[in-house]
Design a protein around this nucleic acid. Sequence first.
DNA 1: ATGACCACATCTTGTGGA
Length: 259
Amino acid sequence: MKIATWNVNSVKARLPVVLDYLRQAAPDVALLQEIKSMDEKFPALEIEELGYNIALHGQKTYNGVAILSKSPLSDIRRGLPGDPEDDQARYIEAVVEHGEQPLRVASIYLPNGNPVDSPKFDYKLAWMKRLLAHGRELLANEEAFVLGGDYNVILTDDDVHDPAAWEGDALFRPESIAQMRQLLNLGLTDAYRACHTEPHRYTFWDYQGGAWQKDHGIRIDYLLLSPQAADRLTGCEIDKHTRGWEKPSDHVPVWVELD
DNA sequence: ATGACCACATCTTGTGGA
């Protein structure tokens, strides 16, 4: 089964390319971030027409995450546990009933955290700490699961066109990288790196300064696999070509194939 | 060439994104 993650940067502004992508790539599951839509304004009919069930955790103007699945969804959970005061829609989780082996999936929109001298950076690090705790909980169940999304973290110098250009940025701060490493060190697999060793493969190119044309990108969208899911991994790719489409998102989809 | 992005709100400018 094919599971894709994609920060679409507004599902309504992006509807034509989202529909084109779903038709062409035909993922069994699509994890969307930054839908920037309330649940009732989400273009559900158009997406259901392509054969998807939809689980939403929407929000007006900002954030918002979704899970699309050709198989039925169950046990839908909205919001990352650990802070009842957190009202930003950045996490949704569900179980995909696919064949004999159910798969738990999550769509994650991790906070950006800039500027670093503001509460936004504290919020990012606190959110990552909660994600770490939740990852630990999920792993205790010894299930196959996939945590896909926009993590807003550049892990290594190989994941950025020019490390110096991003020095000091919240995405590349040692604290952010250390937290991301802790998450991986729980025993999760960065699917893209499990399948590809070549450096400078990106998932985001800024709209500004001709970043796409110059391939000035960063890799910040990940699919993290539990051991039970990693055992079923047969492939992982970045659908870079969608960045060249008309009216593109600044992020491109990443997908995994699991047996 | 002295500017060079995009989306959203109830808007003709400010904010958030990365």
